[in-house]
Amino acid sequence: MLFARPHLLGLEGLTAPEIDFLLDSAESFKEVSEREIKKVPALRGRTVVNLFYEASTRTRTSFEIAAKRLSADTINLSASASSAAKGETLTDTARNLAAMRPDAIVVRHPSSGAPDLLARHVDCPIINAGDGAHEHPTQALLDLLTIRERKGRIAGLTVAIVGDVLHSRVARSNLFGLRTMGAKVRFVGPPTLVPPGFSELGAEIVWDLHEGLKDVDVVMMLRIQRERMNGRYFSSLDEYSRLYCLSADAVARAREDVIILHPGPMNRGVEISSTVADGPYSVIMDQVTNGVAVRMAVLYVLVGRRKAEAESETVDSEGGAPVALAAASPRRAATGE
């Protein structure tokens, strides 16, 4: 057993074999999405709740497709955090949800750490679909998978992550994941958005875009949020774009076989020029496909395992297959859970 954790709250703290296991699984799940009948019965009768406190059609849809391809039932709950603040607290919501006995909760929340809070109050697996400026582990996993497919490896690569790193959960999850897998991570952006403290977390900090892209294997563009460019972090969107828009010129500083990732949706002409976005380096469509595969893998690993644990105690009395005990025990012994 290579992934014994009860939840996926972030990539921080995961080991390289654990990340490899999830990526390897995701590769197998990609094949399911290529079939004519894109559905397997693995999670039949299981319920996955998508609890979204922020609008995100993209991520929610991806999780929903993933769950459905595994035959799980999905329930979508959307709440705006502001209306929730007036009424039911997240803790109350957690308790109510727990009473419905879901088999997993996928949560997106504007507050960093909200999935941790949820995990303390319910006993089913929690999958973080993005919390505040903290982590977005499935996004980073799909980025890692895309990089691994395109480059054949992750270790030894240099990855530049460009933009509003300060507020980016994608940047953090990628930092943790990439570093664990042996890649070098460079954060590129202005000091207001890339504070020097990140160097303590193992990132190299570069303020100049051209210098930051020098000899990199991968460029990961972060989406710039227009509302942040309010004159406090940066004078204006134009000013930002003047310095950090990914142009063909800047890309030329990178390695010849560089690939460019973007978590989408893109602000063309602001953080990325159309020439680059539509150019040969862009792997944005791979990212979408890999997103579903990664989420299938995560759901299957967390929910399928849970089913196993819930039933393994009764196996002997059913006289079904005594192997379960033999198989389950070394896994527990090995992981210490």
Partner: peptide, 10 residues
């Protein structure tokens, strides 16, 4: 899945 509980790589 429960029986073969070795949650090996798919």
């Amino acid at each position: 899945i429960s029986r073969g509980a070795d949650h090996h790589l798919v």
